[in-house]
């Protein structure tokens, strides 16, 4: 069963590496470098999971989360926060995020979280 992941992250290096790593783990992946493009992708296509950076141009992660909850409630959202943004992580969880990850994160940890989300889906 395919599991489609969209990575919304404006930092190119981080985005590229996350995409490569997830692809190597057998996921089907797409990338977006701002919140608005990510929303368009989700409106146009189906995704099981969205990884959204909190700080992004055009539309930030929290707003993106809110919109995705409306247009595609089936898409799980993992929010990536900076340091000292425990507050925004809490807000994200209240707004219905599936999980959050503080920067700088461990790739293994990210993969682990996504694997869990996939297992849940296949149950």
């Amino acid at each position: 069963m395919t599991f489609r992941v969209l990575v919304a992250e404006d930092e190119e290096i981080a985005r590229k590496h996350i995409l490569d790593t997830l692809e190597a783990e057998g996921y089907e992946v797409e990338g977006a470098d701002n919140g608005l493009d990510a929303l368009r992708e989700i409106e146009a296509d189906e995704f099981d999971l969205l990884i959204a950076d909190i700080k992004m141009p055009k539309m930030d992660g929290l707003e993106l989360l809110e919109r995705v909850r409306q247009v595609s409630p089936g898409t799980k959202v993992i929010v990536v926060t900076g340091y000292g943004s425990i507050n925004s992580a809490v807000t994200a969880m209240k707004e219905g995020a599936y999980d959050y990850l503080p920067k700088p994160f461990d790739l293994d940890e990210l993969v682990l979280k996504i694997n869990k989300a996939r297992e849940r889906k296949s149950l």
């Binding site: 930092e11 590496h17 996350i18 790593t21 000292g84 920067k103 700088p104 994160f105 790739l107 293994d108």
Partner: peptide, 24 residues
């Protein structure tokens, strides 16, 4: 301090991720 720290978030994240990819 808070300005500097926030600006450092992304570069540190990039370095960490790159190093982790290399490690793998």
């Amino acid at each position: 301090a808070s300005g500097v720290a926030h600006e450092l978030n992304n570069p540190i994240n990039n370095i960490t991720i790159s190093a982790q990819v290399l490690q793998r």
